[in-house]
Design a protein around this nucleic acid. Structure first.
Lengths: 193, 193
DNA sequence: CGCGACGTTGATTTGCCTCAACGATTGTGG
DNA sequence: CCACAATCGTTGAGGCAAATCAACGTCGCG
């Protein structure tokens, strides 16, 4: 079995022919820090598995402020899901930026939908992933409603220790929904505890 | 075809035997206003399709404040998705309350998972729904990051005109993540525009 | 080395919350 | 069917967490 499939699908046992079908659709890409995988306004067709490195999805609002929606490191998938999964015109509302040199594997949603039908086992896995992601998104929403910025930061550090290393403070701030200055003050407070 | 399947699945064409399989798993329930479908701490096994009426999912935080995560009217599904789809112990973190007399159809996740395997077409529909829900959740998250309480309220009224009728102001406030008093002031401002 | 990007700190502002009081509406028992 | 209580919505005063605006030190890279 091709190494990357083992990595992506862990101990899932596809048949040889299923593996071949999937492999045919995966397109390897290498990115360097600072490179953009997607810019707002582009049409969104693909999503991407992160093999190495780190990327983020962020939205720029009318006042020019950035809002980070997602970080992705090894083992995660990234895209502009609002466009890709929404019922709109599939134009990106967000940007995807490489923040640490990366090797990724892309697959188009069109190809993926075909694979889902050809390979029932893949459907099952996708459903599980979607369900889990949805639960996780709900949980994060709850946290943002009930917790203070300081508590959210602490949870972030615990939850994503591997990400904290690769990213700038202002990336984290924009992910937590606070300003750089506020994060700076929070870090100071925590350090003095 | 049984009326309720037509309602739930619109123009999807299941075979007779597929329909029978699904129908066998759906359990009809009637609820009256004020009744609880689920309380925090219960174990979560089912999700529910709303035929008539209105329900909401809400979380109560440590300080006793309520946070409404979801409203559901005709055509929507409701559950505690954090518990049902999460990897935890399946104990409800939220409550589900009937806020307008309702007729609903429940199905257990266990039964549903079985149906997904037995009926590939159902898998496809479920995937589409999950994808769309995920996109929608992301969009809402963006809105809560970028918009003021007033703008969020305006979007709420536009997006859920049918819900606004059935619910108390403080339900809406807790959905928008603001206090009753703030919502009251916002409504006053908008009225005077 | 020098410049720009990044992080920190201070002063001030602001949107929303909290607390409190008081009408309006709803619903319920007599 | 009315009276009264409970619930709900509104309004005001004051407070607070985080935003904004501004200045400055520092680090890393060309």
């Amino acid at each position: 079995m091709h190494q990357i499939l083992t990595e992506i699908f862990k101990d899932t046992s596809f048949t040889e022919s299923e593996e071949a079908l999937i492999l045919k659709k995966l397109k390897k890409k290498t990115l360097i820090k600072g490179e953009f995988l997607l810019k707002a306004g582009d049409s969104v067709r693909d999503f991407f598995y992160i093999h190495t490195g780190c990327l983020r999805t962020f939205f720029v609002d009318d006042s020019g402020k950035e809002h980070t929606l997602q970080f992705a490191v090894k083992g995660w998938w990234i895209s502009d899901y609002i466009a890709l999964f929404g019922r709109g015109d599939k134009l990106a509302v967000s940007n995807i930026e490489c923040i640490k040199d990366a090797i990724i594997y892309g697959v188009s949603k069109k190809d993926f939908d075909t694979l889902l039908i050809e390979i029932p086992l893949l459907s099952q896995i996708h459903i599980q992933n979607m369900e889990y992601s949805y639960a996780h998104a709900q949980k994060r929403k709850l946290e943002s409603l009930t917790l203070s910025a300081k508590e959210r930061y602490k949870i972030f550090v615990q939850t994503y220790p591997s990400i904290e290393q690769s990213v700038k403070n202002y990336h984290i701030a924009s992910f937590l929904g606070i300003t750089n200055e506020s994060l700076s003050r929070i870090r100071k407070e925590i350090a003095s505890e």
